[in-house]
């Protein structure tokens, strides 16, 4: 019984994190802030939900599979965020008006592109 309660709590917590991340997708002002906010909340939410599912099934093969999924997500999600934001800098997506851009401008001067 305690096992089911733990798994249900983990799943609810993960779902709430996912909801927060997609509210942030709507509310935050800028592509870069949205990207960095949504990546973290999604990674934590998905791994909590998958851990809850694994505890509910409580089978060793399912656990191996779930650890594989969690490992992929931890490896892949920061990589995807980094690649997309690099593409956004290259294609000149606009920054928020309060952003301090001194270092990027200095780099543009060094490497005329």
């Amino acid at each position: 019984m305690i096992k089911e309660i733990i798994s249900a709590l983990l799943i609810l917590l993960g779902a709430i994190f996912m909801l927060i991340s997609s509210i942030g997708m709507i509310r935050l002002p800028d592509f870069y802030i949205r990207n960095s906010a949504s990546t973290k909340a999604v990674v934590l939410g998905v791994s909590l939900i998958l851990l809850g599912v694994g505890i509910h099934y409580d089978d060793i093969l399912i656990f191996i599979e779930i650890f594989a999924i969690i490992f992929f997500i931890y490896l892949i999600s920061p990589l995807a965020a980094h690649i997309v934001s690099r593409a956004a800098v290259i294609t000149k997506v606009e920054f928020w008006k309060k952003t301090n851009l001194d270092d990027l401008d200095r780099r543009k001067e060094e490497l005329p592109d």
Partner: peptide, 19 residues
């Protein structure tokens, strides 16, 4: 407003689908 926004939102969508 831009294409990277749409890419990121699809990424979050697929993570939701997975869960």
């Amino acid at each position: 407003p831009s294409l990277p926004d749409r890419v990121i939102s699809l990424d979050v969508f697929s993570a939701n689908l997975l869960a």
